[in-house]
Amino acid sequence: MTLAQFLVLSAALFSIGIYGVLIRRNAVLVLLSVELMLAAVNINFVAFGRYFADSTAGGQVFALFVVTVAAAEVGIGLAIVLLIFRNRASANIDELDVLKW
């Protein structure tokens, strides 16, 4: 297996995630797209870690931290979405129009 094939796959996932962030209006769906980008990041870290035979296992450790932090972020995000839903029964970010851009 070459390193480049993993990097191309991760670039594809990252770009698809960016597409999702730009195209989706619903906060939960935007968050799902960001998860795709983080999955791409993890593939990069693990593949590079293997490539360098990093003695401190840096790539894999970083991937573990990314997974942990992402779990915390999803918890925060869904709490905020739930809060907004309570107050106005919609989770679409475009309909948040009290504050103008």
Partner: peptide, 14 residues
Amino acid sequence: LAGSAVAFFGDAEV
């Protein structure tokens, strides 16, 4: 992203 990665790493094996 993909183009620059392929250009640099070529067929380096993991």
